[in-house]
């Protein structure tokens, strides 16, 4: 039986193999990934992002337990960084999810970024489709530990959770542009710690300010008001309430204009991203030798990068 047919029957070995093929980026796999995309679309995609050490992996593991208590199936794509030097990686998110390792209703896949910026791995979304098509109800994408500006996850998932840990910044951090703006739900992890309330208050103040600024008249009420949920992976506090909030966000979207809007935004992002990857692959394949020849002259400033790239672009086989 073809891998695709096996996948639709929920065969997890087929899922694993298809993910590897998607990751390898071979041309032959693209039609299959296309079929998988069309077969997918039932699952709810939750993006989870936050700074390194904010407790993302541990939170995911708790969230997965709660989802399983409801009998729903859950997939996790856990992304860690690749080495900028060797291209290799050490993927350690599974360490904090080991208690979930032996349940057919849980599928965890680790992925390396491989030079892609923005917090996602290039084939992460193909992997999400694969789990979706295999019948997983919720698929969580855990991004790499991000800085302030890795916001791609917002264009790739239905519900975005931004995890903040107490004690990492003041109230001015909270009004900066970037990562904090993309949250559908803010999570303050480690809320068993004394300084967590301060972080929750800072975030709530920021959000209230945002609503005031965006109001056109005093009766305006947004369809979705971004909540702040405190969780403790240590005590389990807030985990159930976080899952309820995710479900509520899903329902509000599915029953209003927000949902289709978001789906179109995701579709647009996927299309550009997929084309971009194709373009980049072909560009590197057809220019790498010529670039190598130019680099020496550019480093001695006999040639400049602007002229050089014009020349490359005019001769590239796309």
């Amino acid at each position: 039986m073809e891998l695709f047919e096996r996948l639709l029957k929920g065969d997890l070995r087929a899922a694993g193999r298809l993910m590897s093929r998607a990751e390898a980026g071979a041309v032959e796999v693209r039609p299959t990934l296309g079929k998988i995309y069309k077969a997918a679309g039932k699952g709810h995609i939750v993006g989870l992002t936050g700074v390194p050490g904010s407790g993302k992996s541990t939170l995911v593991s708790k969230l997965v337990e709660a989802i399983r208590e409801d009998g729903r199936k859950v997939g996790v794509i856990a992304i860690d960084p690749s080495s900028p030097f060797s291209g290799g990686s050490i993927l350690g998110d599974r360490i904090r999810m080991s208690n979930l390792a032996m349940d057919d209703g849980v599928y965890i896949r680790s992925m390396a970024t491989r030079g892609s910026t923005g917090g996602l791995a290039r084939s992460a979304l193909a992997a999400v489709d694969i789990l979706d098509a295999a019948g997983f109800d919720i698929i969580i994408i855990e991004t790499v530990g991000v800085g302030q500006d890795e916001v791609e996850i917002a264009r790739a998932s239905h519900s975005v959770l931004v995890v903040s840990a107490p004690g990492l910044g003041d109230d001015v951090q909270a009004i900066k542009a970037g990562i904090l703006e993309i949250a559908d739900i803010h999570v303050v992890s480690k809320c068993d710690r004394a300084d967590a309330n301060r972080t929750i208050t800072d975030l709530k103040t920021m959000l209230a300010m945002g609503i005031t600024v965006s109001m056109k008249n005093m009766n305006d009420k947004p369809l979705w008001q971004v909540p702040v949920v405190g969780t403790s992976s240590e005590t389990g506090e807030g985990i159930r309430s976080l899952l309820e909030t995710i479900d509520r966000h899903r329902d509000v979207h599915r029953s209003s204009a927000l949902g289709p809007q978001r789906l179109r935004r995701i579709a647009e992002y996927r299309t550009f991203k997929t084309a971009e990857d194709l373009l980049r692959g072909r560009f590197f394949a057809s220019t790498s030798e010529r670039v190598a020849a130019m680099v020496e002259r550019i480093s001695r400033r006999e040639l400049d990068p602007f002229t050089a790239s014009d020349e490359l672009m005019s001769n590239v086989a796309l």
């Binding site: 997890l12 070995r13 694993g16 193999r17 993910m19 590897s20 690749s82 080495s83 030097f85 060797s86 291209g87 290799g88 990686s89 050490i90 993927l91 350690g92 599974r94 360490i95 080991s98 390792a101 032996m102 599928y107 965890i108 896949r109 680790s110 390396a112």
Partner: peptide, 28 residues
């Protein structure tokens, strides 16, 4: 192995054979 360009998934300590085999399959 990382420095040789491989993707390495580390499971942490004290795993059971079942956990390891499940993980190896999911990670392909």
């Amino acid at each position: 192995l990382r420095d040789a360009g491989m993707d390495v998934i580390y499971t942490g300590l004290h795993r059971t054979p079942e956990e390891v085999v499940y993980s190896a399959i999911q990670e392909d």
